[in-house]
C-alpha cells in the first residue's frame, strides 16, 4: 500500500503542510477579496476570478487541495480500512476507497480548471 503515498514519510509530512498553508492563505485571501459588509456581488465575484493572477492562485489552490486530500485520505484509509476492522475484505475496501478518492480529485481538478481557464 506504499504506492499511495507521495514519497518518504518526511517528504509527505512537509508536502501536506505546505499544501495546507497554501489552502489557508488562499481561503483568507478569497474571503477578504470578495466579502463586503453587504455580502457578495456578481461584479466583484466575477472580476476576482477573471484576473490572471487570481486564476493562477485559484489553480494553485486546487492543486494543493488535490495533493493534501490524496495524502490525508491515505492516512485515514491505512488506519481504518485494515484487516483489524475489515478482515479479508480490507484490501478491497481500501482499493475501493482509494479509487473513489482518485475519482473525486480528478473530477474537482478537471472541472475547476475548465471553470477557471
Amino acid at each position: 500500500m506504499k504506492m499511495s503515498k507521495l514519497g518518504s514519510g518526511t517528504k509527505d509530512f512537509i508536502i501536506i503542510r505546505i499544501c495546507a498553508v497554501l489552502i489557508l492563505i488562499y481561503s483568507i485571501y478569497l474571503a477578504v477579496s470578495v466579502f463586503s459588509a453587504d455580502g457578495i456581488n456578481y461584479k466583484e465575484w466575477s472580476s476576482f476570478f477573471q484576473s490572471p493572477i487570481n486564476k493562477i492562485l485559484t489553480s494553485a489552490f486546487f492543486v494543493a487541495f488535490a495533493i493534501h486530500t490524496w495524502r490525508g485520505t491515505w492516512a485515514i484509509a491505512t488506519d481504518y480500512l485494515t484487516p483489524k476492522f475489515f478482515g479479508n475484505f480490507s484490501k478491497y475496501a481500501y482499493l475501493t476507497f482509494r479509487l473513489f478518492v482518485a475519482g473525486v480529485i480528478a473530477l474537482v481538478l478537471t472541472w475547476s480548471f475548465l471553470i477557471i481557464w
Binding site: Y42, W45, S46, F49, F65, T69, G72, T73, A75, I76, V101, V104, L107, V108, W111, S112, L114, I115
Partner: peptide, 25 residues
C-alpha cells in the same frame, strides 16, 4: 479527520456552485 473527509467529499458540490456563479450575472 472527520471534518477533513466531509469537506473533501462535498467539494465537487462547491466546484459545481462556483461554475454556476461564474456563468452569467
Amino acid at each position: 479527520r472527520v471534518s477533513g473527509l466531509a469537506v473533501f467529499v462535498c467539494f465537487p458540490l462547491l466546484v459545481w456552485l462556483l461554475g454556476i456563479s461564474l456563468e452569467s450575472e
